[in-house]
Amino acid sequence: MPQNTAASPQNRKLVATWLFVLAGMIWVMVGIGGYTRDSGSGLSIMDWDPIIGALPPMSADAWNKLFALYKTIPQYQLLHQGMDLDGFKQLFWPEYIHRLWGRLMGLVLLLPLVGFALTGRIEKRLIPWLALLFALGGLQGFIGWFMVSSGFFPNSTAVEPWRLSLHFFAAMFLLGAVLWTALTVQAPEPARPAGCKGLKRLTLAAFVLLLLAMFGGTFVSGIHGITAFDPANGIGTGQPPAGWPMSGIFTDTATIIFDHQLLATLATIAILAVTVQTIRHEPPAPVRDAAALIGLLVILQFVLGVTALVSQMIDIGVIHQMNAVLLLGGLLNLLHRLRGATA
């Protein structure tokens, strides 16, 4: 007779699949959010209304009122003076989809959580933790509005980069927590892989370097660095700007881009070192495959970063951001598989 307990293989698989889907939705959210940021769409909705805001404008009058409100902020007055309603709609829809996707993620977390709890398909110890993640998801919406509101300041045409960074890393915390929980539900006991001594420490170091590189990347996005490549003035060429590293660390375009490039290069080297060292240790297949995956992803990430900067194409920049999140998830997956390895 099949087991009906929350810890049964069937229920574990069901709960893990649900959490993997949720993690995937957060990843998609990064892409939508990256596009709204890089395209300048994020300031097109001037209210934060979690309930009524789920509906788009339903009449010409509603559209005109929203457009009139947009005309009062500096982004319109300084960058989009003379824009017509159709132009405003092109800004509106990406940000609307961004917010709607966030609401959908909340439902995808909450409704199955309630259903699984009522039917006994989820372990009781997970319920408070996942309820906390739901609350943190609501807080993430507030942080998003805190970020957007900075774009309404006088003479401001974009959000403050440090608020963008806060919003992004709050999302990364949620993604990491959901993904780690899904992996643990799927494989609750550490595998204790043999032949992996030292790999956990090396992987942790690579993980920290990647986080630092992603932190630098949020500031590159915050200053629209994708459009700043200027070899004639040494911006984006990989050469340290004058006065580096003591000046303009969060304000000077050339310094921000160089710092990101430096951190990204260090992270790339560290991640490739993890891949090479793992393969040399001849670990079990799951560990080897996870290490090989991050090696492929980091090479792709480096190529995407250079291509985005040189081409100045927003779409490539968004793919670069999404691949960074995949790489982060890949490192978390490897760390999870190394849980039982000797340090």
Rank of each mutant, 00 (worst) to 15 (best):
S156E: 08
W93E: 12
W180I: 07
A177K: 00
M105E: 10
K124R: 13
F67Y: 12
Y96D: 09
Q77E: 08
L104K: 03
F88W: 15
H167T: 00
T181I: 13
L111Q: 04
A187K: 15
L133A: 06
I97E: 08
F116R: 00
C196S: 15
G195Y: 11
G102L: 11
T157Q: 05
E95H: 03
P161W: 06
N64H: 00
L104E: 05
R99T: 07
L126M: 05
Y96I: 14
F116M: 02
L132K: 08
P161D: 04
Q77W: 04
I73V: 15
A117V: 06
K197R: 15
G120C: 10
F142A: 12
V108K: 01
W93T: 13
L69V: 07
L133S: 03
M147C: 10
L100G: 02
L66E: 08
L111V: 15
L78H: 03
P94Y: 06
P190G: 10
A68Y: 04
A60F: 01
F88Q: 10
S165V: 11
Q75S: 11
L107T: 01
L79C: 00
G195R: 13
I97K: 04
L113Q: 02
F92L: 10
N155Y: 05
L79K: 12
F88Y: 15
Y96N: 10
L91W: 15
F142N: 02
G195F: 12
V178S: 00
V108A: 13
A62K: 04
G82F: 09
A187F: 13
Q81L: 06
F168C: 08
L78N: 08
W162A: 07
P193N: 11
K197T: 14
T181S: 13
T184I: 10
S150H: 08
V178K: 00
H80Q: 09
A194G: 13
L79N: 11
A62D: 06
S150V: 04
P94T: 11
M172V: 12
C196R: 15
M172I: 12
N155K: 10
M105T: 05
L109F: 08
Y96T: 03
L111R: 01
L66T: 07
H80F: 10
L78C: 05
G144F: 02
P112A: 02
